[in-house]
């Protein structure tokens, strides 16, 4: 663990950087049209949450992100378990998945718009499609990499196929799956923002783009700060979950 002194040092340096930002903004080294000082950004943040609809936008983005991510996680782990549990299925399906994986998920946005229109369903589909890959591939890989002797134990114990999946394969694949979940959440947030920008859905993506169009840089920075906070809290929550769920593993 990091010591208290190191953390304190980090916070002090962070405060110095914010102070530097304030000085740069006050001296107008960068035009205030692009760069508001932290004071103005913070005021816009508080004002937006208290008096404007920034809170609703924040909830909109979180909703898009979580819904798409959950859908992708459930589908990804279920499909991954089905594919990973059979070496036949792996041989047929895995190469196609490997081919599709490097495809930028945002490239299917126009296709999704053509099929679903500029609707929340479009965003859900795009986010789920983009965020499914880390979970899907991690689950397949996790299932494929189970220690073979565990399967022999399962055969000796005459476990049924579902019992093998839930008692041996899934726990053994759990570290891979958790890493996939974390990556998937990052992808989900990015795609949520992009979809909101393009389709004008209720969310922070829409907020930051509109603020930029109106040259309201303080509102823009408030939105970006909130998006960073969403990403930070999401990663932190998954880190804590990971530590809890993997407590049985040797450190």
């Amino acid at each position: 663990m990091r010591s208290l002194r190191d953390r304190l040092l980090g916070v002090v340096v962070l405060a110095l950087l914010v102070a530097l930002w304030q000085i740069v903004a006050n001296l107008k080294l960068v035009s205030p049209v692009y760069l508001p000082g932290p004071d103005r950004a913070f005021t816009a943040l508080v004002h937006g949450l208290a008096a404007s609809d920034l809170g609703a936008k924040l909830m909109g983005t979180i909703e898009h992100m979580i819904e798409g991510w959950l859908l992708a996680s459930i589908a990804g782990i279920a499909l991954g378990a089905l594919i990973g549990a059979s070496s036949q299925a792996r041989a047929f399906i895995a190469p196609t998945l490997e081919f599709l994986r490097p495809l930028p998920a945002s490239a299917i946005i126009p296709v999704a718009i053509a099929v679903f229109g500029l609707s929340p369903a479009m965003a859900l589909g795009v986010i789920a499609f983009g965020a499914i890959w880390p979970m899907l591939l991690a689950t397949i890989h996790g299932f494929a990499a189970v220690e073979p002797r565990l399967y022999e134990v399962a055969a000796a114990l005459r476990l049924s196929r579902p019992a093998v999946i839930f008692k041996i394969a899934l726990p053994s694949a759990l570290p891979d799956i958790l890493a996939g979940l974390r990556l998937g959440l990052t992808v989900a947030l990015i795609l949520a923002v992009v979809c909101e920008m393009i389709a004008g859905l209720n969310g922070l993506g829409n907020w930051v783009l509109l603020s930029a169009r109106m040259f309201r840089s303080a509102d823009l920075f408030a939105g970006v700060i909130l998006l960073g906070a969403v990403g930070f809290v999401g990663a932190l929550a998954l880190n804590i979950a990971e530590r809890r769920l993997l407590a049985w593993r040797a450190p």
Binding site: L189, A212, S217, G228, A229, V230, G231, G234, A235
Partner: peptide, 12 residues
């Protein structure tokens, strides 16, 4: 800084 999604910086 790291969790700030890259696309969020597009408007800036």
């Amino acid at each position: 800084t790291r969790p700030i999604p890259s696309v969020a910086l597009v408007p800036i």
